[in-house]
Design a binder for these strands. Sequence first.
DNA 1: CTGAAAGCGCTTACAG
DNA 2: CTGAAAGCGCTTACAG
Lengths: 332, 332
Amino acid sequence: MKRTSIKDIAKIAGVSVATVSYVLNKKEGSRISDATKKKILEIAEAINYIPNKIARSLKTNKSKLIGLIVADISNDFYSNIARNIEDEAMKFGYTLLIGSSDENPEKFKKLTELFSEQQVDGMIVAPVVDSDGAINKLIKEEYPIVTIDRYLKNVNIPGVMINNSEISEYVCDFLTEKKCNEIIYVGYDTKLPHLQDRQEGFEKCIATKNITAKKLLIGIHNITEDIYQGLDENFSKSKNKTAIYFSSNKLAVAGLSYLNKNNIRVPQDVSVIAFDETEAYKLFPTEIDYVRQPLMEMAKESVKLLDAQINNYVPNGKKVAFSAQLINKNSV
Amino acid sequence: MKRTSIKDIAKIAGVSVATVSYVLNKKEGSRISDATKKKILEIAEAINYIPNKIARSLKTNKSKLIGLIVADISNDFYSNIARNIEDEAMKFGYTLLIGSSDENPEKFKKLTELFSEQQVDGMIVAPVVDSDGAINKLIKEEYPIVTIDRYLKNVNIPGVMINNSEISEYVCDFLTEKKCNEIIYVGYDTKLPHLQDRQEGFEKCIATKNITAKKLLIGIHNITEDIYQGLDENFSKSKNKTAIYFSSNKLAVAGLSYLNKNNIRVPQDVSVIAFDETEAYKLFPTEIDYVRQPLMEMAKESVKLLDAQINNYVPNGKKVAFSAQLINKNSV
DNA sequence: CTGAAAGCGCTTACAG
DNA sequence: CTGAAAGCGCTTACAG
């Protein structure tokens, strides 16, 4: 695998590498005669020249690489985000490095270091619990970085997110308006701020209503088992108008499969609202109401914010909050 | 964002950059005194030195980057592959670049060029129809490349795949043994060899049996609409023992949602076997029988093959075919 | 045990 | 209109 270089072209064309570089980069600043221009282009084509971006990066200090760190790229939610970021990044001329943190701060840190060593121009990250250290280190270096989906308390960097608390409150309000007299919030037992916000929105709503509210907070591992057990203990068909609000797609999938297994009908026996859009909902007997995050817009904004930081770093970037939307189907 | 370099360390330590390079790379060949070693390491730590892999790459001609080209990273199947490849690649010290081709040969080619310019050490690709040109170009350059999931006819490069024809034949046999007297094969109208193999296996089985067989071949776009229409035309409840064999996860999801919408019960009204594992199946009222591909093993093997090519390129690599497995649940 | 030096493939002021 | 030269941050024979 020997690659041809600018030097080869220069030699064949009988010009300097500088000249080759200029025409290959289409710099209009320095006028090169059309004749040499044409000759160089032809030779480049003929010998199948492929520019070495790494050499270019070394000189220009721009790799045109950006790193994306998600919790798990195989999670529907993140793979959709990744796809939208990929498309948008391409438009800006960036190529995407992807890594999964598995909610593990050590792994998260490793990934930031790895990407940093690979000289990515910036990173889009979904920070995990206890990743403040890794993030702050990047900030100290003035490394362009934007958060997506999640955010960190006490850390001021640009990011995109949704109105987690508000949409949860809205969902809860909606359910009470539909005369549900018991609502079970299914969430994670976690310190992730955006998830706490979802819970907080729910609690805010509940505080003003006179209905039964339960919270089922489960660990981030063993989701399925925990949900099965939790619903076994907390849900009974006898109750009249119960609703379950699943605060993530993974929770919803696990919970809905529980309902399936136990022949609990939606919405006859229980109402359901889920979070995030996933193909899986299509296979449930009832079309599920869910909270839709505007992933494409979020992805676009995140790349835009990052590109802005790369071109002109400013500390203490602001967050952009998008409005999630409750999509009404037949599960309430 | 000013980064510290080996030169900074050398200056502070009062040694040459060569010495710094040696201790940082832990080369045991050239003995450096423990004293200077210690000093250098401490300084590196103190000034928060981050090695510039791009500079290293330029010199060593190894970027420790590998590119992964899938049809669409937001597709469950590919995001699972990506995740497994990511984990395995990390073990080998590679970082992953990811791109989606959208079944578009132009985009596929663009991606190979982009990755090539970024100096990836090799690529793992799921080739699309008419990507022979792009692939052959890489082969001519002796670029390490391995295919995954899919393969190309008349192109000899290493790759991992499954026994598509055999497993399809097996699925069909299984259905006839279960006394299904009509089988509808739902597949793509495509030239992708691995999908043609699936169809061929089905046909091979059918040829030996005395049952009704239908093929529903749909375009790669508008999957849902095409399947809805196709099943409307080809499936009727009156038939006694009909089975539908969906040859991909996307087809299965679309088809199962059709069954849901039309209150067609599985397995009472129709038997179903799907391809690939996806979370979505969990939400269907009946547990679906599906063909499981050993993704983790395949991902591992693909990285192993690629790494072997990177370290010692050999033309005409061989394919590794894994055995897919029919997972029996309750849908037949 | 350590250093001077060449060079990887580019870009870019500067000079002519 | 074009070229010589420096330099990006490393690695690595080679010499001492």
